[in-house]
Design a protein around this nucleic acid. Structure first.
Length: 277
DNA sequence: AGAGGTTCTCGGGCGC
DNA sequence: TGCGCCCGAGAACCTC
């Protein structure tokens, strides 16, 4: 589900719901979600009595900050957070519940159970996995055309898998990588190292523009995504490529095609995005 | 029935 | 031979 625009939208809505709430206890129904520390008991004991001070984001990761700790949370495909009254019923896909002292609770629900949580002492979170090796944020001053060129010129991969690599830059997933490549007019199977300076400049701009516009629209709801307040996104209405196979290209009218690239479903316009030329 | 918005681990291939 | 890097495939899980 969530790529950078969806995670940023979850962050914005979540912080309003949980800031200043004190954790009284935690119930973990699916311990495999908790990756650090190894023992779930230690995870629970550490957070008992802590108060949430902020919610941050790094790439597609949420970071829930308490007085002492940083809880690094990845939603993977279908993870979602919501605030509930403790008496409200919950279903079998609810795997972690943070019980607050005011009678409300933050619930983590994840149908596919792919999501992860890592708990670190504040300040340690960027020195350890999974945040340790991440590339620059797409809206940061570190993400320049020159940087992108230096990374893409050194790899033998196709451009799509290279852009999905979170050590090159963070934030792109299967939806937005197809959108950025469409907007830049670049075929997803082009060798990353074969892009011209002009193509890299265009791609650099389209990555930032696509993600930025999607954040403004609250992300894309394809199947199941909702933010922490249960609201869907609106950027799915603006998509040029993702999920539009068989439909007319919004730029040239050619029917869009779908293929597999690096094992991922890939949507593109055979006319606007050519392999040669 | 197979694909789905993600990313970690594993092993093969290659170069020093 | 051994090591390290790079890259692609498979796995983790459930729903439709």
């Amino acid at each position: 589900m969530p790529e950078l625009p969806e995670v940023e939208t979850v962050r914005k809505t979540l912080v309003k719901l949980v800031q200043s709430k004190q954790i009284e206890n935690i119930t973990v129904y699916w311990p495999k979600i908790i990756k650090t520390p190894l023992e779930v008991e230690q995870f629970i004991d550490a957070l008992k009595g802590e108060t949430i001070v902020d919610v941050g984001r790094r790439g597609k990761f949420l970071i829930i900050y308490t007085g002492q700790y940083a809880l690094v949370s990845h939603l993977r495909m279908e993870g979602r957070y919501g605030l509930y009254q403790q008496e409200e019923p919950f279903d079998k896909h609810t795997h972690v519940i943070f019980h607050f002292t005011d009678g409300t609770e933050l619930r983590y629900r994840d149908v596919r159970k792919f999501g992860t949580m890592h708990l670190y002492t504040k300040g340690e979170e960027f020195k350890k996995p999974p945040l340790m090796e991440l590339g620059p944020e797409p809206f940061s001053k570190e993400f320049t055309k020159q940087y992108l060129k230096s990374k893409l010129s050194k790899t033998n991969r196709k451009i799509k898998p290279a852009l999905l690599d979170q050590t090159i830059l963070v934030g792109l997933g299967n939806i937005y990588v197809d959108e950025a490549l469409f907007r830049a007019g670049i075929h997803p199977e082009r060798l990353a190292s074969s892009l011209t300076d002009k193509e890299i400049a265009t791609l650099h701009k389209e990555i930032a523009d696509t993600l930025g516009e999607a954040v403004k629209k609250g992300g894309s709801t394809i199947r199941s995504y909702v933010n922490s307040q249960g609201e869907i996104g609106m950027f799915q209405l603006e998509l040029y490529a993702y999920g539009r196979e068989g439909d007319a290209c919004k730029r040239c009218g050619t029917p869009l095609e779908k293929m597999k690239v690096g094992g991922r479903g890939t949507h593109y316009c055979p006319n606007c995005q050519r392999l040669n030329s």
